[in-house]
Nucleic acid binder design. Structure first.
Lengths: 329, 329
DNA sequence: TTGTAGGCGTTATCAG
DNA sequence: CTGATAACGCCTACAA
């Protein structure tokens, strides 16, 4: 069932059918009605592929993420997909596993299949070589990067203001009377390093002289959180509150502290980050920074929409985070 | 840059380029080399869209899920996507939100865009009307349903043997000396009801007369788990072990029991289901049934591959689950 | 072994 | 307002 069948059935030419299909002017109302009637009863749907051959692109958008299994990314991908679909785009999911070579493979095939745009969730690419390669090869379509920083004519970024989130943490802890606050960084990603430097900068602004020494690094996940606690205790550094760069390490840290009979929040206050499920699976529930996934996703798609519509858009959008206060502080 | 450009550059016709591109025979080795050289230095990639117009389909596969944010689904989607990509297919992600109308919309556009097949993760469609509609309209492409039961000529299912998982739970608890075992069902999905009926059947087989009364229902999530504990205690029913249909409700149940000063596993043994992150975010770590997501995903894609290759395949594949014993039993 | 020509289902450009 | 007809980029008989 194609456009010829419809045309024959309606007794018109394919041009007329095409006009009706695409709501173009210059069709007598009467003719339009006749064609529409045929259309309705024929459960005909135009081939996206054939359309694509003309327009040189499909109504698809690539979503690149390191790993959709990370809840934080899954949430973003969910919003993106839903918003894109509302606009008539299908989302092509790509899990790079953090490997640049995979990323290149994905981008290459995405281009081959004619995506309208690509959204990168987080720091999918870490190195400048890839960045440049993207720019040079595929400058005709827009790339939206969320919570990462890349620069090129066709790259737009939507970011969460991590510094603002850190300020919320420090303010909140200060109100609770804490002065000895540590920060645990669990990732060397764009947002990971961003948060860490925000911690140092804001601490110093608050008159903390040895801010850099209050920064501890560990590996990702619950284990990372447990392990860093032991190192912190070994260091003999005084502390009454710890901010973690992610909920999972925060949960691990809390577990370990509790094993060592420190009460949360009485002995130590804990703040996590990302407002993941984990933050309400632990006892006490975790105070955590909300990274506004939903808002970021909606804005990203809106931005893409505007770009594709040829409108004027800003190259970088930043939004504030929020602090969700629960029982761990 | 298209096939004509390559042809001109190599001094051959487009047919020859096409033959080289698709590794077809009947090309003089020397000619092939020449074309390949041009291909290499031109960073040319054939348009999937144009190819699609000929083959009437793109190398894409739709992945339908209710909500990618559910970790269990995200894990499956991850494996599916990775395996599909290895085979040269792009995965189109669809979150139906559990609404049949959305499901229909998605399927419709997927067909329009010429997917090779569709994989449904879990019970994406609940009603028979949709099922039939699928069958009638799109019988030319295969649908793989994971952990759900639908029947039509073009539907293939890959399922986890839930009964086997339940048997593992009951065996394990029996070994630990438990005789008063309850089951908490948290979903009315295909697998949810499957597990529940397996519980009753297997309990009866073990001589439990009032098995049906040992089944409690609750809503999904941590809250559901907490809430059902109160109802269980109100019911005055004796119990020393509870199996939950999902880790999250198990965690909730555990939390509530601990608040009421029941020790896990000394006073009550707890088993969860799905081996999610939650099961190692709680204390004690949760014994849980592994639903073999990875294996199911790999098998699903393999099955699809065989179907598309026109091979003989079985209409339904079932695999056994495994029990991961941790500290809650 | 190679090339020519037709077709895949649309959209777009012209004539009428 | 409507209808031929030429792209779009590739594959595939069929010819040479």
């Amino acid at each position: 069932m194609n456009i010829y069948d419809i045309a024959k059935e309606a007794g018109v030419s394919i041009s007329t059918v095409s006009r009706v299909l695409n709501n173009k002017p210059n069709v007598r109302i009467e003719t339009r009605k006749r064609v529409e009637a045929v259309l309705k009863k024929s459960d005909y749907a135009p081939s996206s592929i054939a359309r694509g051959l003309v327009s040189k692109s499909l109504d698809t958008v690539g979503i690149l993420t390191i790993d959709i299994r990370v809840p934080h990314y899954a949430e973003t991908a969910y919003i993106l997909e839903r918003e894109l679909f509302k606009l008539g785009y299908n989302a092509i999911l790509c899990n790079t596993g953090g490997k640049a070579e995979n990323g290149i493979d994905y981008i290459t095939t995405l281009m081959q299949t004619g995506v309208r745009g690509v959204v990168l969730i987080g720091s999918v690419f870490q190195n400048k070589y890839i960045e440049t390669s993207l720019i040079n090869s595929f400058s005709h379509i827009p790339f939206i990067v969320m919570n990462a920083q890349l620069s090129a004519d066709n790259i737009y970024s939507v970011l969460l203001n991590q510094k603002h989130g850190m300020a919320l943490c420090l303010d909140h802890l200060a109100e609770k009377g804490h002065t000895d606050i540590l920060y645990v960084q669990d990732a060397e990603t764009f947002s990971g390093t961003n948060k860490a430097s925000a911690f140092i900068e804001l601490s110093e602004k608050r008159g903390i002289a040895d801010a850099a020494e209050r920064l501890f690094k560990t590996k990702r996940g619950v284990e990372g959180g447990r392990e860093v606690i032991d190192r912190i205790l070994e260091s003999k550094r005084k502390f009454s509150a710890i901010v973690f760069g992610d909920d999972n390490s925060a949960v691990g840290g809390m577990q370990r502290l509790q094993e060592l009979h420190r009460r949360i929040p009485d002995d130590v206050a804990i703040i996590g980050w990302n407002n993941t499920k984990s933050s309400t699976l632990c006892v006490p529930y975790l105070t955590t920074v909300d990274n506004q996934n939903e808002m970021l996703g909606i804005i990203s798609v809106k931005l893409l929409e505007n770009i594709l519509a040829g409108g004027k858009v800003s190259r970088s959008i930043s939004i504030d985070s929020g602090l969700i206060v629960r029982d761990s502080t």
